[in-house]
């Protein structure tokens, strides 16, 4: 009975007893969730355009962040460093399309997937060669990102919001909205959706597959840079960040691999879910459940919606 009480009753009693902590936990989850959504978006864009799960998205976050800091360390002003980094990410997108994707057209998806492993290790090695393995401080202040915190004395305690977290949530929300608008309403966006539906049909109406691939990889590069700046400002920019990108996996399982709204909603559910779970139920098993709880939540949803919350239900005749 005691265990049932601890699992089913006590967490809710705690939520009622210290509502400030509940609000703080939800806020932390929300911020993480938005950042997960941003990473997941990078995956979704490339998956929609090429049917490939881009394993390199995590290292692209690190690479973009390190390139930005690297330019700044060379004396380049912060804003110019952002522009130059975008240039590097564009070159990366073109290189990936020319060297990796184009020669592999019409190969099975698994071959393309494995190729993204190759890109990952290439970027790790190249990044370490250029920038070294030391963690770097993100140039948040130079980019005019706010620092410090706002504290509200409320709900019988206090709720503290870091200004950088507020900025991260706002910037991520704007970015997601802009991308959704771009892909829903522009000609390139429609072309992307056509490519996502059928490569052959898209080619037959004159859409350049190569051009679309460059665009989506570049867009994923922009997303990676924003994620790198935001997550880097919360801790620092190091190769350990690429592991966090794998948190996008349960987000994708939950939201569906082809849905931009799915990435957003999935990110928020995973972010808030894992923080609430770790905070209220984690201590029952000694803590540290956050790393697998996200997968547990995603798998729970899959029992009821195997295609994910917003994924396409595929019915194939056999």
């Amino acid at each position: 009975m005691d265990i049932l009480y601890k699992v089913l009753i006590d967490p809710f009693v705690q939520m009622g007893a210290a509502p400030d902590l509940l609000v703080q936990t939800v806020w932390e989850g929300l911020v993480s969730g938005v950042l997960y959504a941003l990473i997941a978006l990078g995956f979704v864009l490339i998956f929609k355009a090429s049917g490939v799960f881009n394993f390199a998205q995590g290292i692209m976050v690190v690479f973009a962040g390190l390139t930005l800091v690297g330019f700044h360390e060379m004396g380049v002003p912060a804003i110019l460093a952002v522009i130059l980094t975008l240039g590097v990410m564009f070159l990366l997108a073109v290189s990936v399309e020319r060297v990796v994707l184009r020669p592999l057209v019409n190969q099975p998806d698994i071959i393309l997937f494995m190729a993204t492993f190759g890109i990952t290790y290439l970027l790790i090695g190249f990044g370490e060669l250029i920038f070294g393995g030391n963690p770097k401080r993100m140039i948040a202040e130079e980019l005019y990102l706010p620092t410090g915190s706002i504290e509200f004395q409320t709900l019988g305690g206090f709720v503290q919001l870091q200004k950088i977290d507020i900025a991260a949530a706002v910037i991520a929300a704007i970015m997601i909205a802009a991308l959704a608008f771009f892909f829903q309403t522009t000609r390139i966006g429609r072309a992307l959706r056509a490519v996502a539906d059928s490569h052959k049909a898209a080619l037959s109406v004159g859409i350049s597959l190569n051009q679309i691939w460059v665009i989506v990889w570049f867009t994923a590069g922009i997303v990676a840079l924003v994620t790198g700046i935001m997550w880097g400002a919360r801790s620092d920019v190091s190769f350990a960040l690429q592991v966090i990108a794998l948190k996008a996996l349960p987000v994708l399982i939950l939201g569906g691999f082809t849905s931009v709204p799915g990435a957003i909603v999935g990110g928020l559910i995973i972010g808030i879910g894992e923080k609430i779970g770790e905070f209220y139920w984690g201590p029952l098993v000694g803590g540290g459940i956050e790393s697998w709880l996200a997968y547990f939540i995603a798998l729970g949803f899959l029992l009821f919606r195997p295609q994910g919350l917003f994924g396409e239900k595929i019915i194939e005749r056999i």
Binding site: E28, S32, W231, D236, A240, I244, K247, E274, K275, S291
Partner: peptide, 8 residues
């Protein structure tokens, strides 16, 4: 995996 994600 959560070294840089210690919020909770």
């Amino acid at each position: 995996a959560d070294m840089q994600n210690q919020g909770s």
